[in-house]
Amino acid sequence: MVKVLLIDDDVDLTTLLKEYLNEEGFEVSTAQDGRTAIAQAASNAVDIIVLDIMMPHMNGIDVLQRIRRSSTVPVLMLTAKGDDVDRIAGLNLGADDYVPKPCSPGELAARLKAILRRAGPSGAGTAQEVLRAGELVMYPGNRAAEWRGKPLELTGTEFSLLEVLARNAGQLVSKQEISRHAFGRPLTPFDRRIDVHLSSVRQKLGARGDGQSWIQSVRGQGYQLLQDR
């Protein structure tokens, strides 16, 4: 059973979401403040975290930053509707996705399942499949990657995005195509998720010898993983 840690100080909401997620087959524990949440995340075996931005004592951004120091557990942020600043900050710190509040329990459950599919074994290949693009080696079956002979630490979302580019190395891939293959849904207007996650991947890959990023963007069109010269 998938273990979910639900972090939100709204007791009525967490009760509602916990009941629904339990019916969907999740095992849910809750925390009402950031400090308690960090302790639970560190001491319990948690498969995924739902984290509200607005909480007392320590906000969700600070909690996420603390969690990311020692864990790559998938995190879904609950954000205020229309608050792009918090959304982008969360994605920059390694959140896998976000849902604006108020959200329906059904939408939350669907997003959790989608994140877990991305974080778990890929359905696109077997455990024996090896995907190579220059010095990048990816193992879609067990969601592992290596860069220049060393393990490359990626979140589930980052792995899915980089896998799409690696399968099309040297070619421009549209943001719509990236969204369909990595997220399983069309890209919506003003959605910055792809840009923010790939910015994080760029930092992890570092720069080429010529100073360029390994992942090039073409404004309004998409992204391309450059091949070795």
Rank of each mutant, 00 (worst) to 15 (best):
I115E: 06
I61C: 00
K204D: 12
R180K: 07
D195G: 05
S122E: 07
G211E: 07
G25N: 08
A144C: 05
Q212C: 08
T126Y: 06
R68I: 13
T79M: 13
S43C: 13
K3Q: 14
L165E: 12
T126M: 09
A169R: 02
D228V: 11
L154F: 05
L91Q: 10
G90T: 00
A31T: 09
D86R: 14
M58P: 13
M138H: 12
Q212Y: 08
K18N: 14
R69Y: 01
K3T: 09
T14G: 01
D210C: 02
E129N: 04
K175S: 15
G220N: 13
G25A: 09
D8Y: 03
R87C: 14
V46I: 15
Q203C: 07
D9V: 07
G125N: 08
V46W: 11
I7G: 01
I7K: 04
T126H: 09
F183K: 11
E129I: 00
D84G: 11
A144K: 15
R143A: 01
L6Q: 10
D52F: 04
L187V: 00
R143S: 04
S29I: 15
F190L: 13
V11Y: 12
R68V: 10
Q216M: 07
G141V: 00
A80W: 12
R68S: 04
A127Y: 00
G106N: 09
H57C: 02
R111G: 03
R66Y: 03
L205A: 09
S179G: 00
E107F: 11
F159T: 02
Q224Y: 08
R202K: 15
A166V: 11
Q32P: 04
M1S: 14
L13K: 00
Q227Y: 04
M77A: 05
D8T: 02
P186S: 04
K150S: 14
V46Y: 06
D228H: 15
L165S: 15
N168K: 14
R219S: 15
G141C: 01
S71T: 02
G94D: 00
A127F: 00
L116H: 13
N44V: 14
G125C: 02
N44I: 08
S179W: 01
Q32E: 06
G82L: 06
L64G: 01
V85T: 13
I194M: 08
G60S: 05
I178T: 04
E163A: 12
V2S: 03
A133N: 13
L5V: 00
A45Y: 06
I194N: 04
Q171S: 14
G134Q: 02
A145F: 12
Q176A: 14
V173Q: 12
G220M: 02
L108G: 00
H197Q: 12
E107I: 14
G149H: 07
L136S: 10
D47Y: 03
